[in-house]
Amino acid sequence: MLTYLLKRLTSLVISLLVASLVIFLVVEVAPGDPASFMLGLNAQPDTVAALRSELGLDMPKHARYLGWLSGMVSGDFGMSYTYRTPVAQMISDRLWVSLPLALMALALSTLIAFPAGLFAAARRGSAGDMGVMGATQLGVAIPNFWFAMMLVLVFAINLRWFSAGGFPGWEDPLLALKALTLPAIALALPQAAILTRVMRSALLDILGEDFMRTARAKGLSARQAIWRHGLRNALIPVLTIIGLQFSFLLAGAIIIEQVFFLPGLGRLVFQAITQRDLIVVESVVMLLVFAVIVVNFAVDLAYAVVDPRLRSRR
């Protein structure tokens, strides 16, 4: 187990370093001057020169990379050029919206997918299975912003249970959660559809395994056999998808954030790109990479919890 942990940790650190280097190279070293790019075509040469020195672009590249890296480690992401505020502050404000939103959506999609997948797998070929599979087909096909608009129409405009958009802040946690509920549902539905299909097929694979027959021979009913022996074995592919979905939900909510006027990470990146605020873009991208890698690490650890063969592998 310790070896497994060490190996995963080593690979985590190496992935982070490689990712940071790639991001740095793409943004800063690639042909074209970031400063003149940020200021646009009609910028005055002296303004460009001023920005260059402000950004430290006149320093050697390796020093800039190390400076950027050590800054990030100590929580200093630099200043936003457009807003003139520390990027770290901007990101953390937005994270307080995006992270809870992603977690809510993930929890919802898991809560929908597990029972639905189990139901469909246990009744393979039945009308119930076909109904679930049809619903997931729709869920995958229909874009989440359409769900979002329908939710707004029904629950905000007609029923007036929720507000149609905006985020009141976390002063009143209940109000904040309420504001995030509709967007979380809209985000969760397509993810739940995918996860249901994965869950169903993973379970069907497991149902054909010899040890499921052994379980029945012991006297377990079909249902008991699935619960006691099927579920945990089916978790491995499901965990993989959950890990991928979390990373996607964290930053992939741009459209949903637009529909609900939520000040999340997605909107931040979108605005930063349109305003050519490279420093913000770079920092958010690095943060997302960090999230993806850490989530993958967590998924790897979860594998080891689920599967003893990984724990003892040397």
Partner: peptide, 26 residues
Amino acid sequence: EAQMCDLRGNDIGMIFQEPMTALNPV
């Protein structure tokens, strides 16, 4: 089926061909 579940493992035990896959790996 419920009566058979009581019977299996209790009155009848069964052993299979593939020992490598007949046990739950986790």
